[in-house]
Design a protein around this nucleic acid. Structure first.
Length: 573
RNA sequence: GCCCCCGUAGUUCAACGGAUAGAACACCAGCCUUCUAAGCUGGUUACGUAGGUUCGACUCCUACCGGGGGUACCA
């Protein structure tokens, strides 16, 4: 149990004993809006109802009951609030010990009780462009995975690759079309710099050419059939091009530092799905409607879910059904989470309902988040109105490279490059993670290239300055003994640090990395203010030692938090 | 039409039902003979409308207005 929780637990116990009730929990103690009011606060409104006193009287009463010993320095009633002040230097000292002891494990907890939770994200479509929309999914999914793990779940990150949908058939249709100036016979694939990117371009072009043309759609349907038949030239081409996209994804994952325990491919589940669909059709669970095969879910206000098109080719639930079952079977899960754009909310309700009706009572959850759009409007790989991953990455690295090289003219190009990449990937991910999941992101490339304000670079810079002091301190001999830290800014910093474990828990419970991002930024603001206000290395040696400890602890927390966001800190920038 | 989400400062975003609604960007004025100015300090502006629940509402409920998304052959 971490320090702050120990304190609030003890306070809750004292209050409950004083009132002879069992009403107050540790979590009822909150942080006053103003440091002058104290460090912890209990609002007495709700308890007053049970104790037949006014909230103000009750607050006053509690002041006499809470003992001011040890970490508790004083108790004060302010109107209906009972405010508690901590012993600043002792609190800081204990906290430093706690953080130093736990290091990169600080903040983790066991609330998940090792429950097995699978989290599926980064659902890539082969043959489509990889763009900033995917980047939100992967940044968000990866961070939620890390948060779950930090909260004691046995989290299993997996990716699902959509390699068998109609988008594939469309792409291959246009890729082999005589009217396509960039068709497969004209371009030499092996000479392409990024074959996956090329496929994405082909897909956008295919969609533009297809439009609403029914005849052409029949041609595409024929391609789909050939792929599903798993033989012939088109199938061979599918195998070949599919790998291009998969290679591209692997490259992206590596750059972003995300890893999966397992990867599922739609093409591996479609046959089993078709078999199941056939059985369900025979049992009249699925029915024919307007020529297609559907599950009629209208009695649950869930409309209809289509399994097979009029031409008999499969739609997404066909593979999703067996895959959902296979996940539980293979990994013995407690829960299965799908991190997918909120626009598929209805689809997942339908899918889960179908599974439920088939007798599957497992716990499944669609973890939806809002989409990424551009200032010009919705992003769509069909229309090609996208900011591709490659473009964004290149631009951001370039910008970081320029800034870094300007600032450090003596650095080698390798060093500049390494730092620039850490800044760039941090910037990109942080942009995606700092917004709560239910808010759409209007992605402005120019804004995302900023390295000041509420950005990852601000936090990285904060750490770099602390690291710099640490390097300098290595040459200075401090007295073994540290001094008491009781400066108000030191206390504010310590109190903020102590809240880190609670932020991890809440961000995890809410599936909200944005809460962690915000906390870390506020922490960095505090430490930057402190840095400017208070001398560290030039203070008396004893004081310097303790101040440096506080700063190092702060750096540790930012590093720990950044790790859960999938971002690196930088020791020099 | 029906369903879901969102309306907070010029802009982009915060605010477990609790004390004076916070940041960032932009704009203006300052700070590098103290540790990295990718930093710091100060200044200007905001809860869509109307009701309701509550000791207390940005937060919960209802209606309306506005924006976005979904709603059978994309995923």
């Amino acid at each position: 149990m971490y320090l702050l929780e120990q304190i609030t637990k003890k306070l809750a116990k004292e209050v409950n004993e004083a009132l002879n009730l069992d009403l107050v929990n540790a979590s009822d103690f909150v942080y006053p809006p103003n440091p002058e009011m104290g460090d912890l606060s209990l609002a007495c409104f709700a308890i007053a109802k049970s104790s037949k006193q006014s909230p103000n009287e009750l607050a006053q009463f509690l002041v006499g009951k809470i003992k001011s010993t040890g970490l508790i320095r004083g108790v004060q009633a302010v109107g209906p609030y009972c405010n508690i002040s901590l012993n600043k230097s002792l609190f800081c000292q204990k906290l430093m010990t706690e953080i130093a002891k736990n290091k990169d494990q600080y903040g983790k907890n066991t609330s998940g009780k090792k429950a097995r939770v699978m989290i599926e994200y980064s659902n890539g479509n082969t043959h489509k462009e990889y763009h900033v929309g995917h980047l939100r999914n992967i940044s968000y999914g990866d961070s939620v995975y890390r948060l779950l793990a930090a909260n004691g779940y046995e989290a299993i990150p997996v990716s699902y690759i959509n390699d068998f949908g109609i988008h594939v058939a469309k792409t291959l249709w246009w890729l082999t079309h005589p009217n396509n100036p960039d068709n497969i016979n004209r371009v030499k694939p092996d000479e392409l710099e990024n074959k996956g990117y090329f496929l994405g371009q082909t897909y956008a072009a295919a969609s533009a050419v297809l439009g609403d043309n029914e005849d052409k759609k029949i041609e595409v349907g024929e391609y789909m059939h050939q792929i599903e038949s798993r033989q012939g030239e088109i199938y061979d081409l599918w195998q070949q091009t599919r790998q291009w996209s998969i290679d591209q994804f692997a490259c992206v994952y590596q750059e972003l530092g995300v890893q999966f325990v397992d990867t599922f491919y739609e093409s591996d589940y479609i046959d089993e799905g078709l078999k199941i669909a056939g059985e369900l059709y025979a049992k009249h669970f699925l029915v024919k409607s307007q020529g297609a095969v559907i599950a009629d879910l209208s009695e649950y206000s869930l409309n209809v879910l289509m399994f097979l098109r009029t031409d008999g080719t499969a739609l997404y639930p066909v593979a999703d059904l067996p895959l959902a079952m296979a996940k539980f079977k293979k990994y013995k899960l407690k829960k299965s989470i799908y991190v997918v754009d909120i626009r598929q909310g209805l689809y997942f309700k339908q899918l889960f309902k179908v599974l439920e009706l088939l007798g599957y009572k497992e716990e499944m959850m669609h973890l939806g988040y809002e989409f990424v759009k551009l200032p010009e409007g919705m992003m769509s790989s069909r229309t090609g109105n996208v900011v591709s991953y490659e473009d964004l990455k290149d631009k951001t690295i370039e910008r970081a490279r320029i800034s870094t090289a300007e600032k450090h003219r003596d650095w080698s190009t390798e060093k500049v490059e390494k730092v620039a990449r850490a800044i760039a990937f941090g910037a990109i991910k942080f942009e995606m993670l700092k917004v709560s999941r239910e808010k759409p992101i209007t992605f402005d490339v120019e804004t995302s290239l900023r390295f000041d304000g509420y950005t990852a670079a601000y936090l990285q810079y904060t750490c770099a300055r602390i690291a710099s002091m640490e390097r300098k301190a290595a040459d200075i001999k401090f007295d073994a003994k540290g001094a008491d830290l009781d400066h108000p800014k030191e206390h504010a910093l310590a109190l903020k640090l102590a809240r880190y474990p609670e932020v991890i828990q809440q961000a995890g419970d809410n599936y909200e990395p944005s809460e962690l991002a915000k906390y870390l930024f506020e922490l960095a603001q505090l430490v930057n203010d402190y840095y400017h206000d208070v001398p560290v290395l030039k203070a008396d040696p004893e004081l310097a030692k303790s101040r440096l400890e506080l700063l190092s602890a702060t750096k540790q927390i930012i590093a720990n938090g950044f790790n859960l966001l999938g971002i690196e800190i930088i020791d020099e920038m």
